[in-house]
Nucleic acid binder design. Structure first.
Length: 814
RNA sequence: GCCCGGGUGGCGAAACCGGCAGACGCAACGGACUUAAAAUCCGUUUCCGCGAAAGUGGAGUGCGGGUUCAAGUCCCGCCCCGGGCACCA
């Protein structure tokens, strides 16, 4: 066969069709004796077009999946669609199409692109979250949580995005703006909504971060730790002169003798009870201002309520204020202000002339006469009755215990994380399976009536009213308990519910009796490797962890965490900016595949940067990857006829085989440790350069040996062209079921050790010696070395450092 | 302010355990092939000196110190860039 020109269209369309025709090709085996490996990439939202960011994400997972198959694992590698959500509904309003139609046509488009990319998914397990077979189980889980008190309704101030016309969870607010609309400030609205009690798991979510260390990126774990935000402190009751108690939360109860006022959040119950006239008006103004204010520094403002409270530790009477910087949703919504030891309290009390009383001194200093700035560190407690002279840390414990013993407080822990508000006033989501009955109250839809189907013909306006409420035939329903006329809940669920457990469904995607068969979960879980963007570090990834723990506690599964290992890949950058529609720098997967092909797209994406780092997409870089694939392909095709030509082994054979085994070692290591495929591919390029340099001298047997291994090593990165070359070499496929090339350390070994000669740490010469040459001999050779000698002669040799097979460093003086 | 990353040629990067800084690729330049071009193959390219050249000397991994025979790598103190959290009591 003469040398062939690499034509990606021909090769990729040929194998894409063949792979699609074999539904078992990428399916895991039942009852397999092989060890299992579950590799998962985050499922996409079906926007309609795959772009380079997706391609990068899936190329990483696909390389791993193919490698694991070749290493003899039974691999589960599924794909699905996060198919509910706002874009479908907004597109529907704009184009007057049904969200379902829009979504399904997008899925079809993207699935075609996926197939074209040749990713090794088991499409038999495809999950689409907008199908009743899937969202039925969202409802089922919701009812289980309702029964356990983990799903509940309450009135609360909620984040509202006017553009989305719906409520947002705290996790969906970024810099005070909507996560989908970075320039739309989120407003606060008081609404009655459904919440999921993720806070019941706050302690465990935090504790188990310890078990994820090593398997999950530190960055993600740090972000989750921050988000959960545990603070240890105490709650203390200050008694008002009117008799009510105001409970404050503090992490520094040791400073309580320095408390000079109590400050309430504007929304606090006591304020509602006692604020009248001018004060009430000022408080309302504060609430309104805060509701519309964006993020950033806000001037502290407050007003005296006219009330006084008694500090239970020293019986001192302190004024009660209301201030805009005290948050209603954190701690108890009330604080004791200790201006001498808290920067914020200092700022506030200075502004309003409230006294400042220092009670903590630095361990090696004295109490200041006049406080010029807050001293917030731990120190020694002073002027604090029986605790004077005790260190802060110890005083905290003792004073909390004292409060408890005397019935006016106790040690307490608060979390920053809040319950997950899941009600959405939109159509395209899972209906919340609840009924409101005038007699029975809120009643769950019985399991046998699930799923509660979305009505097929919604009236969509995007006005902020739940579209389901306009559909009388949906709304009106008899109460499941008493059969009296009742009304259905009309909100739908946050789509993050859908993505919290989809990866369990892949294990048993067509189960009609249960969300999944626990036996299948026991086999596949935890996910061995999860791969996705870091933007989900606290959204999807914290919800998923919660959902797993919840499912464990209702007895469905045994694992505590969904994924043993997580990998977060970097963003794709083009022309200095993150690829996004707004910036107009998106490269579509289709355009890329037309021009360069799927293999090139994958190879460049993996070669241009280590996968965790941001990747610069450049056309010239892609050209380079394309040229390289062509270089391999041309060599293989022009060598086909020589593969079985007999001949005596040559020096070139040995050199190329050595390079081959060094490359096997390198690539295998990269797969097994840090996934720096950029260096795997660089090593592979070096191998190909070596083969080119020795082409004429290679014998047939070596050519066959080396080229077959070349194809196998490259297959996880560029599967199409490798499948084609494998076939051309007369080998039966598929490549991903071939064993991974085995490393032979003997063949990889160099002829001799290259030892560098340094004088005072500077490189002065090189030696090639047999491995294991003795210290004395190396020292002798170094001293005699022609290049090194001029730097040694005439100087006193202080000492000589020898590292066997590696280096000699002669230290001289003078 | 606190918590994570990161800073190396014209560019993307490599150097994994402290041991030859810049592998591999892009771009640029030169050569071969060609009537010519494209494609392909081969070569050069951190900076500053000296040299016609082969070579050869010095400097160099954000900045300042330190440890060490030896530092991009370890330690101390800074600067800059990216990300997360943030009146969280």
């Amino acid at each position: 066969m003469p040398e062939q020109v690499y034509s990606h269209q021909e090769i990729e369309s040929k194998w894409s069709a063949r792979w699609a025709a074999d539904p078992k090709l990428f399916a895991p085996e039942d009852d397999s004796p092989k060890p299992k490996f579950y590799v998962l990439e985050m499922l996409p939202y079906p926007s309609g077009a795959l772009h380079i960011g997706h391609v990068r994400n899936y190329s990483i997972g696909d390389a791993l999946a193919r490698y694991k198959w070749m290493r003899g694992f039974n691999v589960l590698h599924p794909m699905g669609w996060d198919a509910f959500g706002l874009p479908a509904e907004n597109a529907a309003i704009k184009n007057n199409r049904h969200p379902s139609e829009w979504t399904h046509s997008n899925i079809e488009q993207m699935k075609r692109q996926h197939r074209r990319m040749g990713f090794s998914y088991d499409w038999n397990r495809e999950v689409s979250t907008c199908e009743p077979e899937y969202y039925k189980w969202n409802q089922w889980f919701f009812i289980r949580m309702f029964e356990k008190g983990l799903a509940y309704r309450k009135q609360a101030l909620l984040n509202w995005c006017n553009e989305c016309a719906t409520v947002l969870a705290n996790e969906q607010v970024v810099d005070g703006c909507c996560w989908r609309h970075e320039d739309i400030p989120v407003e606060q609205k008081e609404l009655t909504q459904w919440f999921i009690k993720i806070t019941a798991y706050a302690e465990e979510l935090l504790r188990d971060i310890g078990n994820l260390q090593g398997g999950w990126p530190d960055r993600v774990l740090a972000m989750q730790t921050n988000w959960i935000g545990r603070s240890e402190g105490a709650e203390i009751d200050f008694t008002l002169e009117t008799g009510e108690k105001v409970r404050v939360f503090t992490t520094r109860v040791d400073t309580i003798y320095g408390a000079t006022c109590v400050i309430l959040a504007p929304e606090h119950d006591i304020v509602k009870l006692y604020a009248t006239g001018e004060i009430a008006a000022a408080v309302k103004a504060m609430i309104d201002k805060r509701a519309t204010q964006g993020p950033g520094d806000v001037e502290k403002e407050g007003i005296f309520t006219g009330l006084y409270a008694i500090n239970p530790f020293n019986a001192e009477r302190v004024p009660v204020w209301v201030a805009n910087f005290v948050l209603t949703g954190y701690g108890t919504g009330a604080i004791m202000a200790v201006p001498a030891h808290d920067e914020r309290d200092f700022e506030f009390c200075t502004k309003y002339g409230i006294p400042i009383v220092p009670v903590i001194r630095p361990a090696d200093g004295a109490l200041p006469d006049a406080v010029r700035e807050a001293f917030g560190d731990y120190g020694v407690v002073e002027n604090s009755g029986q605790w004077s002279g005790i260190a802060s840390a110890e005083a905290r414990k003792q004073m909390a215990a004292h409060a408890k013993a005397n019935g006016f407080g106790e040690s307490a822990i608060t979390f920053r994380i809040k319950d997950w508000g899941i009600s959405r006033q939109r159509y395209w989501g899972t209906p919340i399976p609840m009924v409101h009955c005038a007699v029975c109250g809120v009643v769950a839809v019985p399991d046998e009536q699930l799923p509660v189907l979305l009505p097929p013909d919604p009236v969509l306006k995007g006005t902020g009213q739940s579209p389901l409420a306009a559909d009388e035939s949906f709304v009106n329903v008899p109460c499941p308990k008493c059969s009296a006329p009742a009304r259905r809940e009309c909100d739908t669920m946050d789509t993050f519910v859908d993505s919290s457990w989809y990866f369990y469904r892949y294990c048993d995607a067509h189960n009609n009796e249960a969300p999944f068969d626990p036996k299948k979960i026991a086999y596949w879980f935890p996910i061995d490797q999860y791969i996705g963007g870091v933007e989900h570090a606290i959204l999807h990834l914290i919800y998923s962890r919660f959902w797993t723990k919840m499912m464990r506690d209702i007895g469905l599964i045994a694992n505590d965490e969904p994924a043993a290992r997580l990998f977060t890949q970097g963003m794709v950058i083009k022309d200095g900016a993150k690829m996004s529609k707004n910036k107009g720098n998106v490269v579509s997967a289709d355009d890329m595949m037309d021009e360069y092909g799927a293999d090139t797209g994958r190879l460049f994406g993996l070669f241009a940067a280590p996968p965790e780092r941001d990747l610069d997409w450049t056309a010239s870089g892609a050209e380079g990857a394309y040229r390289f694939i062509g270089r391999v392909y041309r060599f293989v095709t022009r060598s086909i006829d020589r593969l079985d030509t007999p001949g005596a082994p040559t020096d070139a054979d040995r050199k190329v085989l050595r390079k081959l085994h060094q490359t096997i070692h390198k690539i295998t290591n990269d797969f097994e440790s840090r996934w720096h495929f950029n260096t795997s591919i660089a090593a592979f390029m070096e191998l190909v350069n070596e083969i080119y340099a020795n082409e004429a001298q290679l014998t047939g047997a070596t050519l066959r040996e080396v080229l077959e291994k070349v194809v196998l090593l490259l297959a996880p990165f560029t599967p199409y062209v490798c499948e084609e070359m494998w076939e051309l070499m007369g080998r039966p496929g598929p490549v991903l079921k071939q064993p991974w090339p085995e490393y032979n350390a003997e063949l990889a070994k160099e002829d001799g050790a290259e030892v560098i000669i340094q004088v005072n740490g500077k490189l002065r010469g090189k030696l090639t010696v047999p491995f294991g040459t003795s210290k004395e001999e190396l020292e002798r050779l170094a001293m005699a070395d022609e290049k090194a000698r001029p730097f040694i002669e005439g100087k006193a040799v202080v000492k000589v450092i020898v590292v066997l097979d590696k280096l000699v460093n002669v230290v001289v003086k003078g």
